[in-house]
Write a protein that binds this DNA or RNA. Structure first.
Lengths: 207, 207
DNA sequence: GTCTATAAATTGATAGAC
DNA sequence: GTCTATCAATTTATAGAC
């Protein structure tokens, strides 16, 4: 019995969570209707409340799940004792990999953050384990060892994230304006993005 | 009489538009209540329908207004016959200037685009006059004149926009994670952003 | 043009049968 | 655990007085 319940992939609770994730990520919190989540999950609307009590709590579970697809792997990379070059390469590689498989999550997270107060952002980030101090240490180590030029670690991480995230967050704009509805061209561009971002960022710090 | 109506800054129609802009930009289309716009404008809710018929039409007017704060100036810069160096510098300078005065507009535009279908994006962009071909021409001119290295104009414009837009779109994240709620540090960073982005981009193309 | 009152539809949430 | 029925509150939109 308990073993069967551990098979969460088919449990109602899990079906709801996955359906909620799909709809919330696509339409945002305020644009989502509980009925649409129930339809997506193929179950009765009452069950949403039975398992998650309220829309707010269900949204909270979805947001946490979305964040957990990115945070742990990226934190591990930044915390490693590899060189700053390897950390940046690995960070860019992993970020673009995950985002390619979940292209709407970056916009979802960033947009919902911008619609809530900063205490929500602070609390959520603290819980996720994200901390820029490890990145700062890796940069300072690279500087003191003479590997890279002196550089502001904050500018470095912001530039790196900017270049990684924008192709996903700005996808609708890029597809129309830059790639003129040629989705193949956009995907080819994405495929080369890792190398391009790494080279650009490394060039700004290498001696 | 007609002269007084031309003074739109105090007309009811204009008061509604400005109030709607404030609320829509802050909360998004689905998160906005007509009552809140009326309260913000200090007028009766019925007047919103009297002047704009529906929430949808009012939103359309706001979106057009928001886009018009960025598009015309940027189009003019890209269309000019200046060198690609000057175009990039002027583009970055102007974008960050406008965004600094309207820090929530970039997120508003990009988010509402991502929540509608691509035909809406295509139609809106066509109406705005935005066209990447002028930028392509300026880049190719720079290449043929031997000013810059051969470079993909699409990558160039995407990298430029990425670096310009992210400090605004990702502001809640940056303030908390990178600047640890030190809003002064964030503003100092923003003040130096123009120079930083220009140098970074120019470095990727100059011989 | 501006207001009050209210219609008409939607939506989050609960009660209760099975 | 899952369903039907329904409540209570909200929200867009309109009718009509002034």
């Amino acid at each position: 019995m308990e073993l069967n319940q551990k098979d969460k992939s088919t449990s109602t609770e899990e079906k709801i969570l996955q359906a909620a994730k799909k709809v919330f990520v696509e339409k945002g919190k305020s644009g989502t209707r509980m009925q649409e989540i129930a339809d997506e999950a193929g179950i009765n609307k009452s069950l949403l409340h039975y398992y998650y009590r309220s829309k707010d709590k269900l949204f909270g579970a979805v947001f946490k799940l979305a964040l957990s697809q990115f945070a742990p792997k990226l934190i591990k990379i930044v915390k490693s004792d590899k060189s700053i070059f390897e950390i940046i390469e690995s960070f860019v590689d992993t970020y673009i990999d995950i985002a390619s498989k979940n292209p709407f999550i970056p916009m979802f997270i960033i947009n919902e953050f911008s619609k809530r107060d900063s205490s929500f952002v602070t609390k959520t980030m603290k819980n996720s384990g994200i901390n820029v101090d490890f990145f700062r240490d890796a940069v300072e180590k690279g500087i003191s060892e003479g590997l890279i030029n002196p550089v502001d670690y904050r500018k470095l991480i912001i530039n790196t994230i900017s270049l990684c995230i924008f192709p996903f967050v700005g996808r609708p704009l890029l597809e129309v304006i830059v790639f003129k509805d040629d989705k193949i061209a956009y995907n080819e561009y994405l495929a080369n993005r890792k190398k391009e971002v790494c080279e650009l960022i490394i060039n700004t710090i290498k001696k």
